[in-house]
Simulated scan of single mutants.
Amino acid sequence: MTQTTLPTASLDAEIAALGARHQAAHNVGMQVLNLVGSQAENLLERLPDSVKDRLEETTRGALELAFRAARQSRGVVPDQKGWLNTAVATAMGAAGGAGGLPSALAELPVTTTVLFRAIQGIATEYGYDPADPQIAKECLTVFASAGPLSQDDGAELAFLSARVTLTGSTVHGVIAKVVPRLSTVLGQKLAAQTVPVIGAAAGAATNYAYTSYYQQMAHVHFGLMALAERTGRPRAALVEDLRAALKQNHFN
């Protein structure tokens, strides 16, 4: 990618646009909390101990399956529009929530695959090839963000600063680093889907929130990557610019 020198106003405008996506990523998550009537931290307490104890193992299995399935399906099924990814995931969430915890667990790897394919599609929009092992790892790191039911901006900005290097790093190694945070995120989703009476509605709402969230965060992630390559400005410096823009917007 050819480096260019952007005028300060243009760079600020691009950072502001990415900041707007970052903020939009959380908006739908608040709708889920309103629906289930609980704080995200308390959602995990709804899960049986047997499920909580195996949450990281379940998440690792879902993510590894999603990685393989998404990679294999790219030559067969084209990337879809963002709204269609959201619609498909929302319908699956409703079906998963309708049957309570057993159906929600069965739906989890399918939804994770849809999310991963959506992230790959956004990488393509920015000119990256998801078949490139480096970009595949970057796609995985999008799952390291805080999640739609959290306001942990620090974790999200740290994930945006991270560089996944090829040296000594395998896909399994990246997955192992992502799983602890993602297991909490997916545990919240499972718990929301088990809410009595509104399980199907909560399942649809959580999948809508999660798909919207990860697509927006993928835009921020790959947008910053592309901007760093175009301008020669370090990604970490651009993340600091984003942090400042978010703080300024918060207080205005």
Rank of each mutant, 00 (worst) to 15 (best):
G75C: 00
G173N: 09
A106S: 15
A66V: 03
N85V: 07
L246C: 09
C139S: 09
A228N: 05
E56C: 00
P109R: 11
A209W: 01
G203L: 05
S169L: 14
A158S: 15
G29P: 00
A91F: 10
T111P: 00
L157N: 05
A62I: 02
P48Q: 09
E229P: 07
P196Q: 13
V36S: 03
F67S: 01
D152Q: 13
E57A: 09
V164N: 03
V76L: 14
F159M: 09
R117I: 01
A87L: 13
M225R: 05
G75H: 09
E45N: 12
L18Y: 07
G96L: 08
L166V: 10
Q23I: 10
E57S: 10
A237D: 15
A162Y: 06
K81M: 12
T8S: 12
K137N: 11
Q39V: 12
P133A: 08
A162Q: 13
S38V: 04
Q248H: 11
R74T: 01
R68N: 10
Y210N: 08
R117D: 03
Y213M: 02
G100S: 12
T86E: 09
M1W: 05
D49E: 14
I119Q: 01
D49R: 10
D49W: 07
A131W: 00
D129L: 01
H26M: 06
I198F: 00
G121H: 04
G99V: 08
P48M: 09
